[in-house]
Nucleic acid binder design. Structure first.
Lengths: 334, 334
DNA sequence: CTGAAAGCGCTTACAG
DNA sequence: CTGAAAGCGCTTACAG
């Protein structure tokens, strides 16, 4: 068992693998004059000890991992992170999951180059990567994680349950009784919380939730479009739809139009996120605002505390959602 | 005159400053046990030689410098850069001008940490920074530079003149004779090119450009709003306005509405950029599309070639603009 | 293929 | 304050 407090040196790896320092150096630098068996043994020791070259000073860099950068939602997270980090004198390296899967050794590259910490958005790191990061003393903060909040790392999220609640309360308050939901992907923790909030608001108003009115999309405009059509074809269609994000609401808006329904006169629509486009739509979209920039800033600040040696445990920070009432909601007809 | 080919070592700096290596080390590490005069002398030598610590392997990182990240335009540049860099196995560190001015020694931090190259968007680097980067062998590519294209660094831009031309030709083709322009900031090279394109289209159609119809904004929605009002108050108002970017077009749309004018029935509007919101506006905005992601990708590829030791000279690459006709343009009334 | 020896760039501990 | 000496982590050139 190596002394896990100190970062392992090349010499330590050499001792562990039963070779000389120059040999380890060769393996690290990809030279060809090393026997295959030796290379394997050394490689194994390097991995097991989470070796990173030399004692480096803080890089002044944090890594932001996002699944996909091609959305307004992601853009806002990037902005919030870059701005908050800049204020602390930290640079932000932005990586997408695509980039990570492209290079098999993504984490090797990051560790070699050096990083002060990692903000992982939505997609949790693979367990093996978490272990290596922990081994190298690199702190990680989760932003809007997919899974249950308390899984061993500090995380920043949003009050999803409350968001589902206030969106649905707003619709019920306008007089709607048949309210549908097109949630995000069903396995996501955030989706479940939002749908539960929706159910709670319905129940509180004495309305029995109807499972036919609960559907799950994948956050794309086309999935909103598709599910809205299915919902509106029902024998007893909803008079209002609460959508899992603004993209899905835009798809639903399109579907309503295609069926000759006016929004909000014939059908009310509520989104989630409040991306910039939401306010430019016609009708402008009523939506649940997520404070994405603040969430990103909070994640950066947590990370900075961890980098500075502070402890935050596995704390979960939740920022609150807020209903932004615009033009896409109104009382039901008749 | 130092040997500018090799990166200066700490020992070389020591010799130059007439002190020992440990003393230089102390200055570098901000120790206090160094006489003020000595510190100054050493600091001066460090700066003059563009000292960076040790011989480091490529960082696998490039730096993206943007003035302000709070715009759809910037978001798209960031996306394009991150995606293109990821494909080459490079990480992207995003910095804003705000961050740069916040830390006086921004470039010191970057050089110490190591960067393979820099993409500078719009805002050219200060001359002194260019010199230091060149001294350290860090290549720089300009993206959509403010000034004249050929100023000693390779750059990627867009055919601005042609963009102004096709936007105006479209309006003239619809029958408009009084066409106004609300350009971007007047000193920008791109603004001048676009306005010249506008003039050329007018002249080609036998219309004498009227200086009262040429105004300059600052790319914000509010400046578009303000200038559109001024234009529409003219004794002989325009029947169409070509705007320097989509934000300004959105401001002009608002101004037209406030005056009870319908778009496009009473006034036609053309934007520039084709940000995502443009297609969601009502009426959807006719605009000149800039291939921002391709521009960013091109800049990254140029940079990668330079990093790899290739030569590209001071080449200027221009990608072409394209008119996207939507709903905000129509023939003039009567 | 492997590693003892020399070397590089830098830092640390300490004598003056 | 300053720097000679020792040391650290790693790499290179080369003998076997």
């Amino acid at each position: 068992m190596p002394n896990s407090a100190a970062r392992p040196t090349l010499a330590a790896i050499a001792a562990e693998a039963g070779v000389s320092a120059p040999t380890v150096s060769k393996v690290l630098n990809g030279r060809f004059d090393v026997a295959e068996g030796t290379r394997l043994r050394v490689h194994d020791a390097l991995v097991r000890h989470g070796y990173t070259p030399r004692q480096t000073e803080p890089s002044g860099l944090i890594d932001l991992l996002v699944q996909d950068i091609r959305s307004s939602w992601a853009d806002t997270i990037v902005r919030g992170t870059v701005d908050a980090a800049a204020e602390l004198g930290l640079g932000v390296v932005v990586s997408t999951s695509r980039a990570r899967s492209a290079s098999e050794n993504w984490l090797d590259v990051v560790l070699r180059r050096g990083t002060d910490g990692v903000v992982a958005v939505v997609d949790p790191l693979r367990a093996v990567d978490r272990v290596r990061l922990a081994g190298c003393g690199v702190p990680v903060v989760l932003l809007d994680p997919l899974g249950e909040p308390d899984d061993g790392l500090p995380s920043v999220g949003v009050t999803n349950w409350q968001g589902g609640l206030i969106a649905t309360e707003h619709l019920v308050g306008l007089g709607h009784r048949r309210v549908a939901v097109i949630g995000g992907p069903e396995p996501f923790w955030s989706t479940r919380a939002r749908v539960e909030g929706y159910r709670a608001a319905l129940s509180a108003a004495g309305i029995t939730p109807d499972d036919a009115l609960v559907r799950y999309g994948n956050f794309s405009e086309s999935s909103g479009h598709e599910h809205a059509h299915a919902l509106l074809e029902l024998p007893q269609p909803p008079t209002a739809i609460f959508c899992g994000n603004d993209e899905q609401a835009m798809g639903a808006l399109k579907a309503a139009r295609e069926r000759g329904l006016r929004v909000p006169a014939d059908i009310s629509l509520v989104g989630f996120d409040d991306v910039p486009v939401a306010s430019w739509l016609s009708p402008a979209l009523t939506t649940v605002r997520q404070p994405l920039e603040s969430m990103a800033a909070e994640a950066v600040h947590l990370l900075a505390r961890l980098v500075g040696g502070g402890a935050v445990g596995t704390r979960r920070t939740e920022l609150s959602t807020e209903l932004v009432v615009r033009e896409s909601t109104a009382p039901p007809r008749r």
